[in-house]
């Protein structure tokens, strides 16, 4: 899987920043990044405070965040990074990839997740895919997203053929809270146990396109959850206007 043309020059390499308090996993990550020619480590933090401070520096392409930090939740870093490094793809690292953690992270602005016990090769693949605009998904997450959007109907505008670049940011935003029929189809197949490769074959798409669909779905979920949060805040009188 080589979606991006890789070069040996340092500036074109994908900059990876890491916020992780688990020294063992941090080492594994460092090792994995170092072995890949197209990746470089641009910053490391082990606490929530350091992680937030890291955002003052130059933006990375991929930010890996652990949720359970000694001085607070990684969610805060995800939320802050989504604002201050809008071009950066955020990835949450998780032991189990369980629904609660992953959904919360996506709603905060994460574009993917990484299982901590993944093999080094797989870690590198996930980082590359994320940097290229794709996102991973699991059946449980797919079902949860379908449930979130179930009562909202369907966005009937055809999905843009965004084969390259971060798809979510370029997607038409008129009806950000709706899923297109295609997106629904993808999610539905995922919940039945088909892999992204199989789904791509069934829908006559490239494997990577399916992953960009997932990224766009995550963006919609983030926008929706923000809108809902604002609505709820208004209802509670926390915001004026």
């Amino acid at each position: 899987m080589q979606p991006m043309p890789t070069t040996a020059q340092a500036p074109s390499r994908v900059a990876v920043a890491i916020v992780e308090d688990d020294a063992g996993f941090l080492d594994a990550l460092r090792q994995a990044v170092r072995t890949a020619d197209d990746l470089r480590l641009s910053g490391v933090a082990a606490t929530r405070a350091d992680g937030l401070a890291l955002l003052d520096g130059p933006p990375a392409d991929v930010l890996l965040v652990d949720l359970g930090l000694p001085d607070g939740s990684g969610i805060d870093i995800i939320r802050a990074a989504a604002q201050r490094w809008p071009e950066c793809a955020i990835m949450v690292s998780s032991s189990f990839g369980d629904e609660t953690h992953v959904m919360r992270s996506i709603e905060a602005g994460a574009a993917g997740y990484l299982l901590k016990d993944s093999a080094p090769v797989r870690i590198v693949d996930e980082i590359r895919s994320l940097a290229a605009g794709g996102s991973p998904i699991s059946p449980i997450i797919a079902r949860q997203i379908l449930l979130r959007f179930r009562d909202r109907g369907t966005d009937l505008t055809p999905p843009p053929m965004a084969e390259t670049g971060p798809a979510g940011t370029e997607a038409p935003e008129e009806t950000p809270s709706l899923l297109s029929p295609r997106e629904k189809e993808v999610l539905s197949l995922i919940t039945k146990g088909f892999t992204t490769v199989e789904v791509a074959r069934m829908l006559d798409l490239s494997h990577f396109t399916v992953r960009t669909f997932v990224r766009r779905i995550y963006s919609k979920l983030e926008v929706t959850s923000k809108a809902e949060a604002i609505y709820e805040a208004r209802t509670l009188g926390l915001l004026n206007g």
């Binding site: 699991s138 059946p139 079902r143």
Partner: peptide, 17 residues
Amino acid sequence: MEPVDADLLLLLASLRY
């Protein structure tokens, strides 16, 4: 323990994943 909504297929999908 994840919510599968009585859907055996979703459970099988998780297993495969």
